[in-house]
Design a protein around this nucleic acid. Structure first.
Lengths: 153, 153
DNA sequence: AAATTTACTTGCATTTCGCAAGCAATGTGT
DNA sequence: ACACATTGCTTGCGAAATGCAAGTAAATTT
């Protein structure tokens, strides 16, 4: 099958090949830009669920970028997409287990920013709780997720 | 001081303004690309210390990109740079405390990849240890760092 | 003093981003 | 039934970032 890749390039979306077999690089191959992790944040910590809600984030992601990232995240099985049963013109995006399991990464990012961002908006008490008992903090967020409560909502 | 920013633009490097006050966004404003975290990985987990070593990473970063990222990381006080006392044509890059404190983020990325990358190169035993006792795993890496031993070297 | 090592810089083609506008499907009001 | 709004995208295009190859400069070795 010599020209299999050339064939695929013409007729279908082709997964970019990874740059190395390193686990850090695996994450960056998916999340190595300024936007993709923000979508996860919105889903996990802000309770956003629709295209319009993502598009209205504080950071003002461009709609074409947003659309391409949602496709990528769905292809990677990090999010799923379904029609809103209450409104067919709307779609609900959800995190899969693979997506929810990014929470520890986000929490460590938050902890780092809480320490080193001089203008952090992470409240002292929140930073303390995350630092003192990380697992409890993490489980609290997961519990809240089931109840539609969100840390950064 | 009305035209302070215009003034600064002409005569000096200007920090890009942040997109929001969100702690995740703070991290992404610095690390939101496919390369910057790899430099941290090389310093923290591979024991690389020089420009040439970074440039020879598996992922083959372009030298102009590498140079720009090293400048950025130094500006952010995440790394420091000094002449190699044993060879003046060479520079040694080191992580500051702020840089070393990114280790938890890297570890969580590794853990996630160990679970979800079907071709992960993280050994089962390593993944297990990181999962069962994260703090011990983290401290082990920090101890190893002092002895110039590295997890991914 | 020539050759090599090391750390970059420069020029240029390619890719991605970012903004604004447009479009299609569904939903709503009259 | 028909216009208008909402929602989720797509398209076009200028600007910025990336990626590659080649070049430069300082220190080191031979």
């Amino acid at each position: 099958m010599r020209n299999a890749s050339k064939f695929a390039n013409i007729f279908m979306a082709v997964k970019k090949e990874r740059r190395s077999d390193c686990p850090i690089s695996y994450v960056l191959d998916i999340f190595g830009d300024k936007w993709t992790f923000l979508v996860i944040r919105d889903l996990l910590l802000k309770g956003k669920k629709t295209y319009g809600e993502f598009a209205n984030s504080d950071e003002k992601i461009a709609t074409n970028i947003l659309a391409s990232r949602l496709v990528l995240l769905e292809e990677e099985n990090i999010i799923s997409k379904e029609k809103d049963p209450e409104k067919g013109s709307r779609f609900i995006y959800r995190l899969t287990k693979k997506g929810i399991d990014l929470l520890p990464v986000l929490i460590e990012m938050m902890k780092w920013s809480a320490v080193y961002d001089p203008d952090t908006r992470v409240p002292k008490a929140t930073a303390e709780k995350a630092r003192i008992d990380r697992d409890a903090f993490l489980n609290q967020i997961l519990e809240d997720l089931k109840k539609n409560k969100y840390l950064l909502a």
